[in-house]
Amino acid sequence: MLSPSYPVLTERLLLRPITEQDIDPMLEYKSREDVVRFVPYKPLSREEITERVAGIWSRTELNEPGQAICLAVEERATGRLIGDVVLFWHSAEHRSGEIGYIFSPAVSGQGYATEAAAALLRLGFEDLGLHRIVARLDERNTASARVAERLGMRQEARLVRSEWFKEQWSTGLIYAMLDEEWVRSAWR
């Protein structure tokens, strides 16, 4: 079980449960085709974001495998919402999980995605006791691949044209990290 003490703080960021106040700031980036082109949903409307905030994005703890927590990411210095992240708990038996992240293009290239994803790895490995965490991404999403690599995750698989995704075949990459690699990580 994972029941984080919120907010989760990093050097420059604050990760916390998503609230209704996040709807309009999220709309600014989640409604953009260029931002969501590699995630498994189309650009979202205000109504769709509102529905998700009240539903699947409202979980604040993980009680059993198959669940996920989505967290808003704020700049600590300004209080501005700059993105959101997700931690999935896939299996108790295999102690496995997955991370994901999406950020406003306004903060691209500033290392925020890497810093927030490192906080998710910490939650997964140190608080939930996971053995293995993966990041799955589209090969064309080179920015996301760089985040995984900066975290010290290793590319384990390249699944050539493996999924019909947004009206075309997509080649998927799987990056992974084990708990013993996390212990040696500079992000720990």
Rank of each mutant, 00 (worst) to 15 (best):
A145R: 13
T142D: 05
L120Q: 04
G124S: 11
E74Q: 11
G66R: 06
M177Y: 00
H94Q: 15
A92G: 05
E28F: 03
Y112L: 02
Q168R: 15
Q21I: 11
I99P: 02
R16G: 03
S3M: 08
A54I: 08
A54V: 09
E64A: 15
T19V: 12
R122D: 07
R184F: 04
S31T: 02
S58M: 08
L9N: 09
Q67V: 11
R140C: 09
V39Y: 09
E61H: 15
A54T: 10
A143I: 00
D24R: 12
A145D: 01
P65Y: 12
A157V: 04
L15N: 02
R12F: 02
P25K: 08
R46I: 09
K166R: 15
E163W: 07
T114Y: 03
S31C: 01
T50R: 13
R52A: 11
P17K: 06
I102S: 05
R150N: 14
A113W: 00
V39S: 12
Y175E: 01
V39K: 06
P17A: 05
Q67G: 09
L130T: 02
E28D: 13
S144Y: 05
V147P: 08
R16A: 03
L14I: 11
E167A: 14
A118E: 00
R146G: 02
E149G: 10
D179M: 03
D84Y: 13
Y41C: 11
L9E: 12
I82C: 01
L120H: 02
Q155I: 06
Q155A: 11
F103Q: 02
S45I: 09
S3W: 04
I18Q: 05
S185Y: 03
R76H: 07
E149H: 11
F125K: 06
S3L: 09
V8E: 02
A176N: 06
Y175I: 06
V36C: 04
I23F: 04
A145G: 13
L123W: 09
K30R: 13
V85R: 00
R158T: 14
L178A: 10
G129M: 10
L71K: 04
E33W: 07
E20D: 14
G129S: 08
K30L: 13
E149W: 07
A116V: 05
G97A: 10
S104L: 04
D22M: 04
L87R: 07
P40W: 09
H90A: 12
F103A: 02
N63H: 11
P43S: 09
I69A: 09
R184P: 03
L71V: 06
F38P: 06
R132H: 11
E75C: 05
R150D: 06
R12G: 01
E167F: 13
A72Q: 00
L81R: 01
S91P: 05
M177D: 00
L71N: 02
E64Q: 15
P7T: 08
R122H: 12
L178P: 03
A186T: 13
R184K: 13
L13Y: 01
I82R: 00
Y101W: 15
R12A: 03
I102L: 15
S108K: 15
A113N: 03
R59W: 05
R95Y: 10
V107G: 03
K42R: 11
V53G: 01
V35G: 03
D127K: 13
M153K: 07
E149P: 10
E115P: 03
M26C: 08
P40M: 10
G124F: 05
L130N: 00
G124K: 06
S170E: 15
P40G: 08
R16H: 06
